[in-house]
Write a protein that binds this DNA or RNA. Structure first.
Lengths: 353, 353
DNA sequence: TTTAGCACTCTCACTCTTTGAGTGCTAACT
DNA sequence: AGTTAGCACTCAAAGAGTGAGAGTGCTAAA
């Protein structure tokens, strides 16, 4: 306790240097290595003192006494939020990403798939994509189509273009009038309702109302209810998860469990606000893989959130490289999905120079 | 080269014993272990000689000189095809499987799901199920539903209950008459056509015919074409694939890649004839996981092939146990799906004693 | 043809040692 | 005060040596 530990300018510089070095080499970094860097010109001994202070503050840790230091998640957090110099993609890189992504004519689904593939290739990490049904999309059409004796297909379509179907068997056949009544009733009650508003209780009420007219209609309502649940459930795809197995800083068993169940991922993605975010498993105990980080951003369609795109990797990952990638890709996807009119980025399309 | 190597009765017995022991213990098995078995009563030295011969013939191999022998895939092949004594399920086992499977009232889809779940649980391997669209199923309905300006949803339904949909954007809106014409034309040309008969050329012709009436209809035909391709593509579900990750004889990377892409599986399943089959990845280089084996059989509905059910595991797997399971389950599924009238098994349903 | 015996091989687990990187502390220096 | 050089210390990783154990191939006898 000799003198309070202060995070002066130099200590921060050293922290940043440690993170950079550790990310680069993967080895714990010692005072000597730091002292050799151009950006720092104090002796190793001084750095040792500062590093000890940074360790006491919880930004660094030692795997064992005679090893160098590695950043803690707290250290990474500070680095990412404050210390890291904002990097800019070169035009070459942008062109490369553009070519991997596709253009205006690429179907939206393929667009995000391509983005995920690009990310796994460029970062050697797993990519995660959610194709979330926008909260604001509404039911635009419900159809019930007879397809056989007592067999019906329910079709549910949203304003954002999602289509779900489901076969449904009834106890009796419906005559034209009954079918008419039902579809009319459903259209009246559901069309224009936002996906977010759909709830169990709502369907319970509808079952009651419909049953009053004809009991055997209730399976249809239940079918629609199930479809709407499907709809609310955001689709989540992880690609390139095999990359995680070759990261030795991740626990293989945990990775395996994650690949199986995607534990905690959707939770982690859910409470994401619109900008780019970096989250560490250590800060969020629902996520299954220890020592991992998630770099994620949302893409928009016509200005509204339409899904997320991100990278899952070990905490030791090249943030300087990955963050611009994710940012650029989500911006570009937003741009392409909106037919080239996303307000947040106006300068992206021109890749002259 | 002193004397030709002959596969006499005893050598086969020894091979079988080696396989059994290896499957049981997972360790390379030596001459001494074999000589101790009741079924074999010659000395270890004799067994050593025979094992050397079996190795020369390619049925066994040594991980290293001072270790015991393990079967090669050729050894397993011989074992499974010729040596293994046909085991019979006990009534207890049958009852257990029956209870896991379901009964006549269980929906078909659930039936195969249950079977897969039962297999993963009992064998600790992954289970694979194909819910193949039966070759003989026919298009029962095609609908085109307008859902927005220039936006249509195509719905394709088969006699076996498969439903596919797809959104389709046209250059112009269709009026009632045009839509009528189109659906009528399609229904006329497709309904009743078996899934197997659908072909590119057929759709090419239809595009031509439809275009003569109205050029901008062709995207719809193309959409239907794509849907029908989807349809022909058998649905393939692998469940319990996480089990494969805990098999240390399998390469984790290969397993993960397989889980993501199911490489080579459908090819491997496709050239399957009706009885139970065991295939090794070593005999089929399209399949992604080395040292694995696939034990698969087809189930039938009303006497016609309706899908496959099987187990994917390491080559070292308890064939004596798994084969009867798969056989019993496929037979039982066939029986249940056919309403208790599949000719190939008449005695299954009675589980008295 | 089978068996017993024996020398040989090779892996695995264990221990001991060395090496080298990196530290913390102290004392001198600015 | 803060910074630096020097030094003793710690610890993991890598290598070398050892002994046990399992299993083999070969030879010679039954």
């Amino acid at each position: 306790m000799k003198g309070r530990v202060i995070v002066d300018e130099r200590k921060l510089k050293i922290l940043a240097a440690v993170v950079d070095e550790y990310v680069r080499t993967g080895e714990p970094v010692g005072s000597k290595a730091i002292s050799k860097l151009d950006s720092i010109n104090v002796s190793a001994a001084t750095i040792r003192n500062d590093m000890a202070a940074l360790e006491q503050l919880g930004y660094l840790e030692q795997p064992h006494t005679s090893a160098g230091r590695i950043p803690t998640f707290k250290g990474y957090r500070l680095y990412i939020d404050e210390l890291m110099d904002a990097p800019v993609l070169t035009d070459d890189e942008k062109l490369r990403l553009d070519s991997m992504l596709g253009d205006k004519d690429t179907p939206e689904e393929l667009l995000v798939q391509n983005a995920a593939a690009a990310l796994t290739e460029l970062t050697h990490c797993a990519a995660v994509v959610t194709n979330s049904v926008p909260r604001f999309s509404v039911i635009s059409k419900v159809e019930v189509i007879p397809t056989g004796k007592r067999l019906y297909v329910i079709l549910l379509i949203t304003s954002s273009g999602n289509i779900k179907n489901k076969a449904c068997r009834l106890e009796f056949d419906l005559n034209h009038e009954q079918l008419e009544f039902f579809t009319h009733y459903i259209e009246e009650n559901l069309s224009g309702v936002s996906v977010d508003e759909l709830s169990e209780e709502m369907f319970d009420k509808m079952v009651a109302a419909v049953s009053a007219y004809m009991v055997s209609l209730s399976p249809l309502v239940k079918g629609i209810c199930e479809l709407s649940e499907d709809l609310r459930h955001q689709e989540l795809t992880v690609s390139g998860s095999e990359k995680l197995l070759s990261c030795d800083e991740l626990d293989k068993m945990e990775v395996v469990r994650f690949i199986e169940h995607k534990n905690g991922l959707s939770e982690m993605l859910e409470d994401t606000f619109s900008g780019l975010q970096v989250k560490f498993s250590s800060e969020n105990d629902t996520f299954a893989i220890g020592n991992s980080s998630l770099i994620v951003s949302k893409y928009r369609k016509d200005g509204k959130e339409a899904g997320s795109l991100g990278v899952i990797g070990p905490m030791r990952v090249d943030y300087k490289k990955i963050i611009p990638y994710v940012e650029y890709l989500t911006d570009k996807i937003s741009y392409l999905m909106s037919g080239g009119e996303d307000d947040t980025i106006t300068e992206v399309p021109d890749t002259d120079t």
